[in-house]
C-alpha cells in the first residue's frame, strides 16, 4: 500500500496563518471542518447546490465545497467563526436572532455570510438576473436581495424571517 501524497498549503483563516499538509483532494470545506476543526462552515450537499458551505475568499463569497484547499495558497479565508462571538455578535447575527431567521441553524452561517456579501455586491453595482437598468445604481430591493440569496437553501424555510433580519440590519444604517 502506497501512502497518499500530500501537499503543503498556507492559508490565512480569519486573519490567522495556518499551514496544512493535505491530500490534494481535500476541499476547502473539509480543510476547514476536518483539519482546522472550524465546523461553523456547514456541509449540506458537497456539490455546490445549497450554499451551507459559503465562506469568503479574499473578500468574495464562494461555495467552499467546490474548491480544493491546495488551490488557495496565500488566500485570505473568512468563516463564520471570524465574524462575531456569542458574547459579541455581529449586528447581522443579532438581527438573525431577533427575527428568528433560522430554525435548525444548519444553513445559518452560510446565510449570514451570504447576506453580508449580497449587500456589498449590490452596492458595488454587480448586476443580477433581476437587475433592470444596468447603468443605474442597483437598488437594495427585496427582489435583488432574494435573487442573490437564492443560492443559500433553507429547508426549515426561514426565508421570510431571513429577509426581515437583512432589512433590519440595513435599517440600522450599516
Amino acid at each position: 500500500m502506497t501512502a497518499t501524497p500530500r501537499l503543503p498549503v498556507t492559508l490565512s483563516v480569519n486573519g490567522e496563518t495556518r499551514t496544512l499538509t493535505l491530500d490534494p483532494r481535500v476541499t476547502l470545506l473539509d480543510a476547514l471542518r476536518e483539519h482546522l476543526l472550524l465546523t461553523g462552515t456547514k456541509k449540506g450537499c458537497d456539490q455546490g447546490q445549497c450554499g451551507a458551505c459559503t465562506v469568503l475568499v479574499n473578500g468574495r463569497r464562494i461555495n467552499s465545497c467546490l474548491s480544493l484547499a491546495v488551490m488557495h495558497e496565500g488566500d485570505e479565508i473568512s468563516t463564520i467563526e471570524g465574524l462575531g462571538t456569542p458574547e459579541a455578535l455581529h449586528p447581522m447575527q443579532a438581527a438573525f436572532i431577533e427575527h428568528d431567521g433560522f430554525q435548525c441553524g444548519y444553513c445559518t452561517p452560510g446565510q449570514i455570510l451570504s447576506s453580508l456579501s449580497v449587500i456589498e455586491e449590490i452596492r458595488a453595482g454587480v448586476p443580477s438576473h433581476v437587475t433592470g437598468d444596468l447603468e443605474a445604481p442597483i437598488p437594495l430591493s427585496d427582489a435583488e436581495i432574494r435573487e442573490r440569496m437564492s443560492g443559500n437553501l433553507c429547508r426549515c424555510a426561514a426565508y421570510p424571517n431571513i429577509m426581515a433580519a437583512i432589512r433590519d440590519y440595513l435599517g440600522e444604517g450599516a
Binding site: 462571538t85 456569542p86 447575527q93 436572532i97 445559518t108
Partner: peptide, 20 residues
C-alpha cells in the same frame, strides 16, 4: 428569542459529524 441562537449564528453549535 431562541436561547441557542447565539451559538447557532456564530457557528459554535456542533452538529453530529462536528462533535469532537
Amino acid at each position: 428569542s431562541r436561547t441557542d441562537g447565539p451559538i447557532k449564528v456564530t457557528g459554535r453549535a456542533a452538529y453530529s459529524a462536528e462533535r469532537q
